[in-house]
Amino acid sequence: MYNFEFERPTTIADAVAALGGDEAQALGGGQTLIPTLKQRLAMPGKLVSLSGIPEMKGVCVNDDGAVSIGGGTPHAVVARDAAQHYPGLAALAGQIGDPAVRNRGTIGGSLANNDPSACYPAAALGSGATIVTNTREIAADDYFQGMFTTALEEGEIITEVRFPVPEAANYQKFVQPASRFALVGVFVAKYADGVRVAVTGASEEGVFRWSAAEEALSGNFTADAIKDLTVEAGGMIGDLHGSKEYRAHLVGVMTRRAVAAAA
């Protein structure tokens, strides 16, 4: 990997200042960025580590009942500390990568990267979460803008993610066994005002909401209610791990499994 300067600020304000320079790049847990740097696919002049900022870590419950997770919180901590507040989210965090990845990788890093096969984007979009940054609050529906693309501006940091807690939720992941990413993953969450279904790993546009399934499930929250629904294979990811048609098929299967497990 190319060499770079390294800074490890202890406050959000210092991190924002450090990211202000040219060619500065934020470092979350590094589970994607470090392999990327090793392949020389990126050449930041400076890495600003977000791992030493206490105000960006931890899980808490807000007055309105929403679960807030600091942007620098590792997956393993979410899996443990969110379990009693939002079990569907904690279960998803506990399925990401492997134990070592979960000890380093962070929710902010995952959402900022927006890998089309990552798990967290499905939870954020499927929960209608709010992505809180150092400058603003972004609704999940506005945040994800296609594969590896988000609403984040240059130098903007995810400081917190707020999840409204649903009545029931479940994440079903069809694991790609070599990478442990989702070949297809579906997060289903049932709220008082309707059901949300978010799909990761499947589409060339990255995470997306399956609105036909949401509509059917909002009237009848059973796997049966969507048994005749399918998604178009066009626009799905097709690669050596699975064709477009295979992924489109899995979207239906995993959604039905998630509903059956949540209901």
Partner: peptide, 16 residues
């Protein structure tokens, strides 16, 4: 182990 947690040391900077 870093502070008791299993981590892959090829995927963590020494300065971290």
């Amino acid at each position: 182990h870093v502070d008791g947690d299993a981590v892959k040391s090829c995927n963590m900077l020494a300065l971290e």
